[in-house]
């Protein structure tokens, strides 16, 4: 187990360097630079421009800039935002809980609906429910997030007025951030209606962000279940006189969950990508929205640092998912 952990952590280092490289050069491929954008319409004298470029070190050769950046990364320095002048690390983790809260809700939404739906579809293979679910999953999977979000906003916020359009909580409420998770903080604050407000703000973004993982998880669960249900050990379980509920819910599901957990792990990356769009649409103050804003401002250190930190988070989550396998599948636990 520990050998496995060390091997995995060993793999993280080259990935980390690769990500920093991509992050560094990708943002510089965009036309314009932070100094020009800060100056805006007023323009800038060439002397002042050169001076500012020098101050941030943007006039040095690009390789030198990268080497310097990598050097400070290794020392744990993620740079300072050009715009806000705050450390990127600090900004990131101030906003991170909002993204995590949204992502967790979206994942819970996807898992809680996707796994039972997939199981039922597999057990009732070929039924109307099965066909309906698979068709819906296909639509859900290919739905453009932007369009889907706008549709939901028009229907539920616009026409029905059931949910708020944007933000994390109504402006009526104010309380200090304790955990960074609005649902928990609103409960702690004890203010009446605060939790309900936070929850209602979460509904649409959760659905939008959770739709693709939901479709993927439902399909993966169905196909994994179909495979498992034809295994010999399922026949053995039935030969013991167990109830269908126990055969499916205990014997089959436990085995089917192994590939489903892999899928869930792979969806983390999809979730981050989706969070960027979803947060932008719903003005959700998380790192997705912050990244988009930083890109528009050509805030090089913020974009670079943000990308590297996101990559690190994804790697950590994948590592955790890999460890979870062993808990479910004793064969993997023992061969590690």
């Amino acid at each position: 187990m520990f050998g496995f952990l060390f091997r995995r952590i060993g793999l993280v280092i080259p990935t980390f360097i690769g990500v920093s490289l991509v992050a560094f050069f990708l943002i510089r491929l965009l036309p314009g630079d932070p100094i020009l954008l800060m100056a805006g319409e007023r323009g800038l004298s060439p002397e002042r421009y050169a001076e500012l470029m020098g101050r941030y070190g943007f006039d040095r050769p690009i390789w030198e800039q990268y080497a310097g950046y990598l050097g400070s990364l290794i020392q744990g320095d993620f740079g300072t935002s050009i715009i806000t002048k705050k450390p990127v690390f600090e900004e990131f983790f101030a906003l991170f809980p909002a993204t995590v809260e949204l992502s967790i809700c979206a994942m819970i939404f996807a898992v809680v609906l996707g796994i039972p739906a997939g199981v039922v579809a597999a057990v009732k293979r070929g039924s109307g429910f099965d066909h309906g679910l698979m068709a819906t999953a296909l639509v859900g999977y290919s739905m453009p997030i932007f369009w889907w979000a706008l549709l939901l906003i028009i229907v539920f916020s616009g026409i029905l007025q059931w949910t708020p359009v944007s933000g994390r909580i109504s402006l009526l409420y104010f309380f200090p951030s304790v955990t960074g998770f609005m649902l928990i903080d609103s409960l702690i604050s004890g203010q009446k209606g605060a939790f309900a407000s936070a929850a209602s703000h979460l509904i649409l973004p959760t659905i939008v962000l959770g739709t693709i993982p939901l479709a993927v998880i439902a399909r993966q669960t169905r196909s994994a279940m179909l495979e498992v249900l034809s295994e010999d050990y399922i026949r053995t379980a039935r030969a013991k006189g167990l109830s269908p509920f126990r055969v499916v819910g205990v014997h089959a599901l436990r085995n089917a969950l192994i590939p489903v957990i892999t899928t869930i792990g792979l969806q983390i990356g999809v979730l981050i990508a989706g969070a960027i769009l979803t947060e932008t649409i719903f003005s959700w103050p998380g790192i997705g929205k912050w990244m988009v804003d930083s890109i528009f401002r050509r805030d090089y250190p913020a974009v670079q640092g943000g990308l590297v930190l996101i990559a690190l988070m994804v790697m950590v989550v994948n590592l955790i998912v890999d460890m979870l396998y062993g808990l479910i599948n004793p064969k993997i636990r023992h061969t590690r």
Partner: peptide, 15 residues
């Protein structure tokens, strides 16, 4: 009760 031809695959690997 019944036992089967393939003992290895007739036992559930997860339990």
């Amino acid at each position: 009760a019944m036992i089967f031809q393939e003992p290895m695959s007739s036992l559930n690997p997860c339990f």
